[in-house]
Amino acid sequence: MKIFSALVNFTLVLTLAVIALGAYTRLTDAGLGCPDWPGCYGKFHAPVLDHHIADAQEKYPHLEVDPYKARNEMLHRYIAGVLGLAVLAIFIASHWLKRYRILASSLLLLVIFQAALGMWTVTLNLLPLIVLAHLLGGFTLLCLLALLRAEISWEAQSSSAVAAKTLAEPALAKWIGFGVVSLLVVIAQIALGGWTSTNYAAAVCNQLPFCEPGWQERFSFAQVFHLPLGHETYEYGVLPYEARMSIHVLHRIGAIVTLLVLGSFLCVCWRNAQTRVMQRLVLAMGFLLLLQITLGLINIVALVPLWNAVAHNLVAANLLMLLLVFLRQMVLRNPEKVYGHNQKYIAEC
């Protein structure tokens, strides 16, 4: 179990790295750094040397070969490939251990689908809907791995009668509905952020609190959710200014709603949490929420600086992950019912 736990920890960290690299690739406009998939200009490495660049240019004369963008894209693919192998190892190990097979199977199916989305991202020339699905798939993979890691930890605790009692949080149980609403709000806000990024709308408005004067007259919900289809390429965006502005403004409104809803939920949980574990999770989420708002403001004022935007992406992923683990912990009021193989032992204690 120690080896399996270490494998899950490694895969969790690797997933964070892939999410960061994916954001870096997208923000450096390197999503089409390699026009083919899974290789790059017909090879399995980026064209860095002069003769490689010349060969790539000869094969794709209608494209401008950019070694920097190609290197970013291939690095992302390499690390994502390692992540896929790590998830496969988790799947095999879970069936050998005869534990966590549902989560492990879900992880494997998701990583296969993620690979397909990565391919379609290139072959469909950065179609926003596909790029957004790829982003959300990465966040979902991180959350499933976090739940698997938490399940391993909770199972270890449930073997001790004293520790098992610390799993229960009856005072928080009545707030689970509020928590689910908060989770849905966070997911919606992350999706809006991804939609803003994939449509190249992040730097459209640079004034506070919402946008430049007169934005109310040009704002349109219909344009926010309009799917731009039928274009040869979606690199650098295809939507008009009014549509991008509407997307950006809605994301800012979503940030305010998220701050109010999630902030209220965390305040309620802080007052009702009885264990240090839950209190620390609340503090961690509160810190991440405030950090995320700060990073968002910096994005606006400084016109989306690269590393700040990457951090904005990573903080969102971690906030979602912690919130999901927290909600899972809230429903563990009767751990002996959750882990059937320890039920008799805990009952006797």
Score class of each variant (00 low, 15 high):
C211Y: 03
R218H: 05
I3Q: 13
D50W: 11
I298H: 11
F221D: 11
I53A: 06
I102F: 09
L109E: 02
A17N: 10
T11G: 07
L260R: 01
A80T: 07
V111L: 04
E212M: 09
L192N: 04
L319S: 01
L110D: 04
L320W: 02
L136W: 01
L147K: 11
H45L: 06
L97R: 15
Q157T: 04
V257W: 03
K344F: 07
L303Y: 12
I112G: 09
T198P: 15
W215H: 10
P209K: 15
S220C: 12
A202G: 10
A17S: 09
A86W: 05
A309K: 01
Y339R: 10
M1V: 06
F287Q: 10
N308R: 08
C40D: 01
R101F: 13
S264P: 09
P305I: 13
P61L: 13
A255C: 10
I176L: 12
L49Y: 12
L288M: 11
L319H: 02
W120C: 09
L332E: 15
N206C: 05
A347H: 06
C211G: 01
T258W: 07
L314G: 07
A161Q: 00
Q292S: 03
L266G: 00
L129T: 11
C349P: 00
N199P: 03
A54T: 03
E169T: 10
L262S: 15
L144K: 04
I102P: 09
V186L: 14
A146C: 07
F219H: 03
G254C: 04
A30M: 08
E336G: 04
S220I: 05
R149W: 10
N9K: 14
L184E: 00
V82E: 02
N9Q: 15
G254V: 00
V82M: 07
A173V: 04
